[in-house]
């Protein structure tokens, strides 16, 4: 068996082992590779930055534990910016596990300690609302008819942040972070198309190609594109975290993938004649 034939059938244990090494090395010895912020992340940052203090944001924590490594750091950075600007955040979850991600994110933001924010006055978490687009339509249409208590079971009528919040017209911005394509489209349908609301979307990198047409057509004002977008937001908001640490690892591992693709293609071409002959 020639070297090229061996290359075309590399055991996956070796590939995964090399990927693991490519992740551990830059994690232990950060290379400090330059970070270029993307247009979509800058648009997200600028949209939030343009909101006056006291503006109300509806934020969907629409991801679970699988999406947390990609979206959690960006969510934390986004909340840092929002609390810094003294915005009011009404949070909800369209993902079942979103209610488990909420405390993780708030642990990273620490709004009470860092910004003097008060639960019920400056932010609230309504919990998981089942129904996908039906839930979105309900929240934007007549929130209090749908939601009578927050995640902890406290009546929303007793929370001052909810005093003047009844539906889409009362939200100055609708933002979401999700791992579900249906949710990403759903907010565009229900918030932008139905109420012409300003929408920001955070999604996994693999979803960006399907969400970007909404950004290009002005239906989404900014996109947080997975871990890269999260690193951008951390940089722009001045709150470096896991995503910036991940940037080096990502660059390193992506380079390894490129090498594997090159090896695979070269090996394929070198052994193609033999395969056809046999």
């Amino acid at each position: 068996m020639s070297i090229w034939e061996k290359m075309t059938s590399l055991p996956r244990e070796i590939v995964m082992g090399l990927v693991l090494i490519a992740m551990i090395i830059p994690a232990m010895n950060p290379l400090g590779l330059p970070l270029f912020t993307g247009d979509m992340s800058r648009a997200w940052y600028n949209t939030v930055d343009a909101l006056p203090a006291g503006s109300v944001v509806l934020f969907d924590v629409g991801y679970g534990s699988g999406g947390y490594p990609s979206l959690g750091p960006g969510n934390i950075a986004a909340f840092h910016q929002m609390f810094e600007k003294d915005l009011k955040i009404v949070m909800m979850a369209t993902a079942l596990e979103g209610s488990m991600m909420y405390p993780l994110v708030m642990e990273g933001v620490k709004p009470e300690q860092n910004y003097g924010a008060v639960y019920g006055e400056d932010y609230v978490f309504l919990g998981y609302i089942a129904g996908g687009q039906t839930a979105m339509a309900g929240v934007l249409g007549d929130l209090k008819a749908l939601v009578s208590v927050d995640y902890e079971g406290t009546s929303v009528d007793s929370l001052s942040i909810m005093d003047n919040v009844n539906g889409a017209d009362d939200f100055d911005l609708v933002a979401y972070m999700t791992t579900a394509g249906g949710t990403a489209e759903g907010w565009v349908y229900q918030a932008y198309s139905q109420y012409n609301a300003d929408v920001l979307g955070g999604c996994l990198s693999m979803m960006t190609t399907s969400i970007k047409p909404y950004y290009d057509s002005g239906q989404i004002l900014g996109i947080m594109d997975g871990i890269k977008g999260a690193a951008d937001l951390e940089f722009l908001t001045g709150h470096p975290g896991d995503a910036i640490v991940s940037s080096d690892i990502l660059s390193f591992t992506q380079a390894l993938v490129l090498i594997f693709i090159l090896i695979g293609n070269v090996s394929f071409w070198m052994t193609r004649g033999k395969g056809e002959a046999s």
Binding site: V19, L20, M23, I24, A27, M28, G66, G67, Y68, P69, S70, G72, L204, S205, M206, M207, T208, T209, G226, I227, K228, D242, V245, S246, I249, L250, T253, Q254, V257
Partner: peptide, 22 residues
């Protein structure tokens, strides 16, 4: 482009756990 983004997404998830372990 979709495939490239998918690879980045999967690594994004995996590296989050690697950072957690380390």
């Amino acid at each position: 482009a979709s495939f490239g983004n998918t690879v980045m997404s999967r690594f994004g998830m995996y590296q989050g756990r690697i950072i957690f372990l380390l």
